[in-house]
Amino acid sequence: MSISLDEVRHVARLARLELDETELLSLQSELSELIGHFVDIQSVDVTGVAPMTHPVTMQNVWSEDIPGGTLPRDVALRNSALQRAGLFVVPQIIED
């Protein structure tokens, strides 16, 4: 099974990864090879088997509605590369 270069570009866009041509080509061959091995589970009879999302059956997990501590704003911002006036600075998102 092989994946086209366009598919690799599309998946990289979905994954928000900027990749150069060399890396795209290398991923094309690596992904094709790995996904080629994935076909082995296509032979397993899964009729009527419910997909398992988690190793333990989890019901809704509730907690008491008690206010707890949260990170102070300056501490939450401390690890950001760019911040100003108590806010994360990001490139313009809404056009003029």
Binding site: V8, A12, L14, A15, R16, L17, E18, L31, I35
Partner: peptide, 22 residues
């Protein structure tokens, strides 16, 4: 975001993110 992730994740991590996204 794309540039940061493309530059700062290593190859193995990018490969696994790509497999998962695919």
């Amino acid at each position: 975001v794309e540039k940061t992730r493309g530059e700062l994740f290593g190859h193995e991590v990018k490969t696994r993110i790509m497999i998962g996204t695919y």
